[in-house]
Structure formats: structure tokens, C-alpha cells
Design a protein around this nucleic acid. Structure first.
Lengths: 204, 204, 204, 204
DNA sequence: CATGAATGAGAGTTCATTCAT
DNA sequence: GATGAATGAACTCTCATTCAT
């Protein structure tokens, strides 16, 4: 009875092909130019075919978002090996930045794009986003317990740190920092991050 | 030769009228609902007329960006009255946030939107943006001179602070923080900002 | 040669399954939502399969019409138990109305919809419809014989009565009588029917 | 200042051209085949142009309905010259039938089509329809006052008469009476109508 | 026999832009 | 200088139907 399985696998493959095409279009032409037609053209199928695999445009975007969130969460998990919470927080920041700059189009979709969570998700969708935020909150909490951070509320601090890294990568992704040559980007960004985190994390 | 001058002045007036209408539409209906037709309707001219004053839609958006940058710069200038550089930096952050949250669509256009500077100047445009960044850099430099900040490069620190505030407001504007109820927003944001700046600015 | 017979019987069974599903869709979702895909989904076959049993969508609609006519004819037959022709005529009207209001989408298909008998028989089809009309004609004829109706041609009278009930139910089905609240519908319709029939059927 | 007027007149002319094309399409191809694109093709304009004169497809249908209701009402008004209410009622029926058979596509739109009064009208629209119904009700009332009709409620009787004529014409328009050759249609229909009305209207 | 992936045509609608007046 | 009617290309989405497997 491998038939049903094969069918399902084929289906998933086709979904993936569509998602890949959509993602490419994001990179090449930007969010607002991603249309069902263009996706269909890119994969050399008819527009109708896309609808066999995705209910509508939103579903495609949501699927891409989920892929992004899953990958980001996966990267966060690796951090759990780091015992020192301050060190972990610094690594956290670098992981965030690295993820964003390696997958700018996914990051854009997840955190920048004008939310396409019109119809269905809102909950399921963001739950998965919240999961990642919670990992950060826990990290901050550990830092507080270990006295690396002595004042402030967990939420405010977490939001601050998140904003810091989000601000950096979104200025880069949306090309608002022409002053930094591309080749120094990562170094520059990490310097900024290190500076702020160094100030926040007191030597105890 | 007053005729040519008058003509030019009339022309500028009309451009302003169009830009005002466009800006109102931004505020009232959001970026994606701004169409040439709607702008024309609002000023009670025909769509064709708009094209007599602006080459295309992009040119209107760019002009609006400039208006935004000018207004933001104006607000920054007020800060020059504050003598204590640390205090000034804190005020700087609040001014930034206030500007963004009061003019979310304009802010979006200036700092978030996928740049519509496709066919247009790219440089002229950003010069004006850089001017504002420089005001921040100077403020940071003052803080370093006055020993409020003891380590780090001016550029990295400036970028960090900018990223922090940009990150906060852009997460809010693009609705990525469902966890904060709208009424606590400003307080929460300022708490985060104060926390980070307090850590950065050492008591000397 | 039982094989051929079995095949034919299987074929008829499958046709019936498809028609049942189609009819359910009619009732549940209305004419315009009946698509081949939905029918196929409902019976858990593929769209292609439907085409093995029916040439096209029209053929399904025609088959449904026939089912409708058969059911209506069946209901008419029950009337033959009523001996008094005047009484029978009144019952006839009520049966008609009841059938229509109980199966509005089917009735619509049979008597209102722009005929889907485009490519199809036109005659075979309507023969079966005529059969029902003839039952009415006979009833009218009986009434004339029994002196309940004293003047007029059978055809004109039959057409008049048919038009009356068809007019009532089709105004209702196509929602052209906002003035009657739904709960009084049946009562109101029967009042109208009784009035007209009372006038037509003289007390002899 | 005839310019504004001319503009308005041109506009109305274009609307009329569109409406005429739509009406033709109704006749030639039936309601469900009337599409914006086909209308545009027929008048040799682009689809977008149609939207300059009508908000959406519904508005076109509603405009046609209104035209139909207006014309029908106009014809009803002529009846007011007839003093004898019984005679007037008979004329009323003939006017109704004549209007329907002379303008089958309009009639279809007004009374048969699955109501397209989705969004806006419902009220404005049917008010105008009700106006015509009221003319009938008044006629019936006059008949009752003058003792041509001795029993029954005005509403039930009016509904009965309306249903009768509506039933006749809609069976014809939707081609459910293949048994009558087209050339005898009017005569046959009037015979039926006269029969029923004769029974209803007692000689007093 | 049955599948179901794929299509092609077409639905309604929107909008930046042009051009004859 | 201003008009505004008109366009053409684009959009998302639906569906009857076909055909290789």
C-alpha cells in the first residue's frame, strides 16, 4: 500500500516546489510582486495548478512563514547547549542575526511584511512565533537569576533585545543603511550587538 | 522675468497640494490604498493632472519620504536645547518613537517599505536621511566626550541605538507584538528604551 | 451472458449514486454550488470518474430533472384515490405546492432554470413532463364532466391552473414576495389557491 | 455652461449603450452568460471602461431591473383611464402579459432571475417593485368595493392573480410549454386568463 | 475501471498611465 | 494647464473537462 504514501510524498514535493518558487520570487522581485501567476509561470504550470496545492495566496505565505519559524526555532534549540546564560544570550543574538541575513526573504515574511494573516491563522501561526519569543524570555530570566542583569522587567528587557536585533537586520534587509559596505556588514552588526549586550550584562 | 518665477511658484504650490492629499490618504487609509485616482479625487482634480506635476507614483512617494525626513529632522533640532548629552540621547529616543507612532504610515514609507527609490535618485534622497543619522552620531559623540559612554566606536553605538528604536517601532507598526495591549504600548516601549539606555549610559 | 447484464446493472447503480450525491448538493447548497468536483468529493470518487457515467454536467442535470418528474408523478398518482374530481383538483394543487416547497432546488431545475436541455433530447425529456400535465388535464376533464366547471377549453383551463400554482411557488422560490413572512407562507399560498379554485369550481 | 450638462448627457448615453448591450446579451445568451467582458466586447470597449459607468455587475443588473419596473409601471398607469374595475382588472392582466412577452429578458431579470440584489438595494429596488404590486391591490380592492369580488382577502386575491399571470409568462419565457405553437401563444394565454378572471369576477 | 493532476478559458475587478480634446 | 475617458495588463480565483497512468 505504498501508493497512498507515494501520493502524499509527491504532493509534498509539489508543495515544496511551489514554495521554493515563491521564495525565489520574494528574493528577486519583492513581496508585492509575488503573484500566483508569476509563481505558476516560474514552475511552468498553469495558475490553476497552484490552487491544487494551496487554498489561496495566503496559505502559501503562511506555509513559508511556518518554514521560517521552524528553522529559526531549530537554530535556537542549539543554544541550549550553552550553560552560561550571558554567553547564551550573546550567542542568541548572533544566531538571530545570522538567520535573518542568511534568509532575508523568509525573515522579511516572518517579521517585516504587512501581515497577511487575514483569514485563518492569527492564532496557530503566532503561537509558533511566540514559542521563539519565549525561548528568549527564558534566556533573559536565566540571566537575571544568575545576576547578569540586576534591574528591569523580563518582558521589557526581552522586547528591548528583540527590537535591537530586529532593528539591525530589518534596516539591512530593507536597505536603509547604505553607509556600511556589504563586506563589513556582519562584523559591524556584531560589534553593535556586542556593545549593547556588554552594557546590559554586568560582570558579576 | 517674474512670469517664470510665478509659474514655478504655482507649480510648487500644486505639488504641495498633491502631496498633502497623498499624506492624508496614507494616514487615513494606509499605504496600499493610496492610488493616483484617490489622490486626484481628494484634491478634486483629474488623474491626468497629477501627472503634470509628478512623473509617476514613485516620485510622489519619494517626495513624501523627503517630507518625512524633513519633519523628523525638525524634531531632532529641538533637542539641541538640551545641554546634558545623556539626557539629550534619552530625549532623542523618545522623539524618534513618538514621531514613528504618530506617523506610522509615513514612518513605514521612510524606513520600512521596500524602497520605491527604484528609478530615482537613491543618493539625493538618502543624503537627507543621513543628515538625521548624523545628528544621532553627534549626540553619541558628545556622550563619549562627556564620559557617559566609555567604550565602543561611534558608528557601532549609533547604529545600535538607531536599531533599537527602529526595531521597537517597526515591530509595533507591522503588528508583530500581539503580547502588548495597545494602551500600554507607549509606557512599555519607553520602559524598554530607558532600560537599555540606562545600561549604556554610565553614571559618571 | 450475465456478465454484460451485471455490468449494465453496476453502471446504473453508480449513476444512481452520483445522482443521489448531486441531489443532496442541490438541497444543501443550491443550484449554483453544484460542481462536478463537489459531486465527486461527496461520493469519494475522482472528478474523472463522474465522466465515465455521464457525458457532461448537462446530462446529470437532465437526469435529475427526470428524477424530479418521476417523484412528482408518483405523488400525483396518490390522488387517484380521491373520487370527487373537484376535491381531487384541490388536492392536486396542494400536492403541487407541497412538492415544490419541499424540493425547491429540484423544482427550480425542473421548471424554472434556463433549460440545460441544450445539447440533449428536448423531447424524450419533456415527454415525461407532459405525462404529469396530462394527469392535470384529465382531472380538469373530470371536473367538466361532473359539471364542476361549465365553460372553457380543457387546455386553457389546465394551463391556467398550472400557471397559478407555478406562479405562486416560483415567486416564492425566487424570492419575489418579501411581503409574506416565511412562517405564514403555506397558509397564505393555500388561501390564494383555495380562493381561485373555489371560484372556478362551481357548487353544483 | 453647457459643458457640465453635455458631460452628464454623454455619461448617460454611455450608460445606456452598456445597458442595451447587456440586455441584448440576456436575450441572445441568457443571464448566466452575461459577463462584464462580453458586454465590453459587444460595445467594443475594454472591460475597465464598463467600470467607469457602473460600480459592478450588480449595478448593471439593478439598472436594467429599474428600467423594467419603470416601463411596467408606465403601462399600468394607462389603465387608470378605465373606470369599470372589473374591466380594468382584465386589462391589467393583458398589460402584464403583453409587457412580459414583449420584453422577456427584462421580465426575466425583474421576476425570474435568482435575485442579484446582494449588496445594496433590497429596499430601494423593491420599493419600486412594490409600487406596481400596489396598483394591482388597489384594482382588486376596487373590484371588491364594486361587488365584483365578494369574498377573500385583498392580499390573497392579489397574490393569486399575480401568480396566475406570472406563472403563465414564466412558463413561456423559460420554455416549459412546448405544447403551444408560438403563433397561438398570446391567444391561448389570454383565453386562460379570461377564463380564470371570468370565474373570479362575478356578474353583479 | 478509476484516477487525479493538470489545464485553459474565463469570471469579476483594479489601477497606473496615456492622450485627444 | 487641465481634463477624464479609455486602456491594457495585471490581479485572485473557479471549474468543466481531459488524459496519461
Amino acid at each position: 500500500m505504498g501508493t497512498a504514501e507515494r501520493k502524499e510524498r509527491d504532493r509534498q514535493e509539489m508543495r515544496q516546489i511551489i514554495l521554493d518558487a515563491a521564495q525565489r520570487l520574494f528574493l528577486d522581485e519583492g513581496y508585492e510582486h509575488v503573484t500566483i501567476r508569476r509563481i505558476a509561470d516560474k514552475i511552468e504550470y498553469s495558475p490553476g495548478t497552484v490552487y491544487l496545492y494551496f487554498k489561496d495566496k495566503d496559505e502559501i505565505l503562511c506555509a513559508l512563514q511556518e518554514i521560517g519559524f521552524a528553522e529559526f526555532y531549530r537554530r535556537q534549540q542549539i543554544l541550549s547547549g550553552i550553560k552560561n546564560p550571558a554567553e547564551k544570550l550573546r550567542a542568541h543574538g548572533r544566531v538571530y542575526i545570522q538567520f535573518a541575513l542568511e534568509n532575508p526573504e523568509l525573515y522579511d515574511l516572518m517579521f517585516i511584511i504587512r501581515a497577511p494573516m487575514n483569514s485563518h491563522p492569527k492564532d496557530t501561526e503566532w503561537e509558533i512565533g511566540m514559542r521563539s519569543l519565549n525561548v528568549l524570555r527564558e534566556n533573559v530570566q536565566e540571566c537575571m537569576k544568575a545576576n547578569f542583569i540586576k534591574v528591569g522587567s523580563v518582558d521589557a528587557i526581552s522586547f528591548g533585545i528583540w527590537s535591537l536585533v530586529h532593528g539591525m537586520v530589518s534596516l539591512i534587509i530593507r536597505e536603509r543603511i547604505p553607509m556600511i559596505p556589504a563586506e563589513h556588514r556582519t562584523a559591524f552588526v556584531e560589534e553593535s550587538l556586542d556593545f549593547v549586550l556588554a552594557e546590559i550584562l554586568e560582570k558579576n
